[in-house]
Design a protein around this nucleic acid. Structure first.
Length: 484
RNA sequence: GGUCCCAUCGUCUAGUGGCCUAGGACAUCACCCUCUCAAGGUGGAGGCACGGGUUCGAAUCCCGUUGGGACUGCCA
């Protein structure tokens, strides 16, 4: 059986699950899914104990599950492999590829009077230091020659070895650092393609050097993986998306009511595009058409507006039943296994009426871009005390005698007609005509009195679903407020 | 500063030497539809950073300039 690509997504759990990470994970996953024998691995790179938190690990796993990026192997934890990392470092040291260095950061900085040397100047390379409590292990980077990164997206990228410093491989504490740990694990997992963000491009030559040194001292000949460095995701200032300053938490998009298929579709469009003019395409098409060599070279701006538009398209493409179900966590969180965080329900379990919501849902389905917008739009159906937009009220009722007159007429008329949307519609037209108001004008005071707002779902259906009693009650309440 | 990457409408992109009068999508503007708001429809404005080459021909290839970015940790 021919082996498909083995790819891994290797995040470090140091914060919320970044949208850039989500895209890296997606592109890795796509490559794995293109082949029946492809393998997608999640490896949590948690060797820096000071910065990792277990809740971030859970965040990564649940966000990936939400996106549908299923694993073939893992999740593995890099911290489970520290023994292997240490023995790799030991082998490298014995093979003459590493040396001990006890320089402090200040020492290194102080010697950097001449600007020529990149990073560390190799001060300890020939001092023959041995292991000690303050001695870190550095890699003896070749002084000459060139290391070429064969990048599937960018082509060959050459680094002169003299521009690469003798980087630290293991801390004085003995802990093996990213460059070596990552390479060691990639060898262990038989990774064939390393697909990651462009910020890792400068790491690639170091890791290639480490890889062949390991082949040498371990006496095996593990094939170097293919590399592919994805363009960065940037903010409006064209800077790399920052965890601190930019809205990058994938979880927060889920909380806002973006749906996974839309989110995945949008993510795929960042640096890649499907054939033809259609951008909203099913995942199967994306898997089918995706090619690393087609990935763009330049940074992409994460455009929430476009995401929202796509999400709206996905929402509208749902059946009513699917839409109603999808709204669950936002309209009836007490019934959901998962619920959005930091979003207080607008109404209580007692006030909510599932059957009513099912009738109302189609009215809002084509009016929202995210599920998070749904509660506010339908709140007037469930709330006992209606929040009223004061400016709207003044405009069409409070400061408008005609509006008040229409309301008063509506109270009488609505009491005696059959309670159906088309009839309510016709009655409102007539009421308006009697006062020289077109329907556009005539519906406004009713809408405001009943829904508290000048904008919202279609009015007459809303009146029908709300029921005669509540509607007339609200009309009277509004009228009473004018005389008060 | 050094190393490296990048450069098509405001944004994401199509474009791999003639199909380009540069296509699509989001955003934006106008109009239509319409009980509000959306959705939908139609139309408009808007781009190859600049300068040199190569070529019969360049958005596409080469060089330079300019601009942007990443990295430069005993983080990943």
């Amino acid at each position: 059986m021919p082996n498909g690509p083995r790819v891994r997504f290797a995040p470090s759990p140091t914060g919320f699950f970044h949208v850039g990470s989500a895209r890296s994970a997606l592109f890795n996953w796509l490559l794995a899914r293109q082949s029946p024998t492809g393998c997608f691995i999640l490896r949590i790179e948690d060797t820096d104990a000071d910065r990792n938190r277990e809740e971030w690990v859970e965040g990564i796993i649940s966000a990936m599950a939400w996106l549908g990026l299923d694993l073939d192997e893992g999740p593995f934890r890099q911290s489970d492999n520290v023994e292997t990392h240490i023995s790799a470092a030991t082998a490298l040291l014995e093979g003459g590829y590493l040396y001990y260095c006890d320089c402090t950061g200040e020492d290194v900085q102080a010697r950097k009077g001449d600007t020529k040397t990149p990073g560390y100047d190799g001060f300890c390379r020939d001092r023959g230091l041995s292991r000690g409590p303050t001695a870190a292990l550095r890699f003896k980077t070749p002084r000459d020659g060139v290391t070429t990164v064969q990048d599937l997206i960018r082509g060959d990228v050459e680094f002169s070895n003299h521009t690469i410093d003798d980087f630290v491989v293991a801390k004085s504490s003995g802990a093996v650092l990213y460059a070596l740990a990552n390479v060691t694990d990639d060898r262990k997992d038989a990774i064939t393609h390393v697909i990651r963000g462009e910020e890792h491009l400068p790491n690639a030559p170091k890791q290639i050097l480490l890889w062949s040194a390991l082949n040498d001292v371990l006496g095996d000949d593990v094939a170097l993986p293919f590399y592919a460095h994805l363009p960065l995701l940037v903010n409006e200032q064209r800077k790399k998306l920052s965890k601190r300053k930019d809205p990058v938490a994938t979880e927060s998009y889920r909380d806002q009511g973006y749906v996974a298929p839309a989110f995945v579709n949008y993510l795929a469009l960042l640096g890649w595009s499907p054939r033809g003019d259609e951008e909203i395409v099913p995942l199967t098409t994306i898997i089918e058409q995706f090619r690393l060599q087609d990935v763009s070279h330049s940074p992409a701006f994460f455009d929430v507006k476009k995401l929202s538009h796509m999400n709206g398209e996905y929402l509208r493409a749902m059946s009513s039943q699917e839409f109603i179900t999808a709204c669950g966590p936002w309209v009836s969180p007490w019934l959901s296994a998962w619920r959005p965080t930091d979003r207080d329900a607008l109404w209580s379990e007692r006030q909510f009426d599932a059957a009513l919501f099912a009738r109302v849902a189609p009215l809002v389905q084509e009016r929202v871009a995210t599920l998070g917008e749904v509660p506010a739009m339908v709140a007037f159906f469930f709330l006992d005390e209606l929040p009223i937009d004061d400016a709207a009220f003044d405009k069409v009722i409070g400061a408008d005698p005609l509006g008040q007159a229409l309301l008063a007429a509506a109270v009488e008329r609505f009491a005696e007609i059959p309670w159906e949307a088309p009839i309510l519609h016709a009655a409102t037209v007539e009421l308006g005509e009697a006062m020289a108001m077109n329907l556009r004008k005539a519906q406004a005071p009713i809408r405001c009195a009943v829904t508290g707002s000048l904008v919202g779902p279609p009015l007459f259906e809303s009146l029908e679903y709300l029921g005669r009693e509540k509607v007339i009650g609200r009309l009277q309440t509004a009228l009473a407020q004018c005389s008060a």
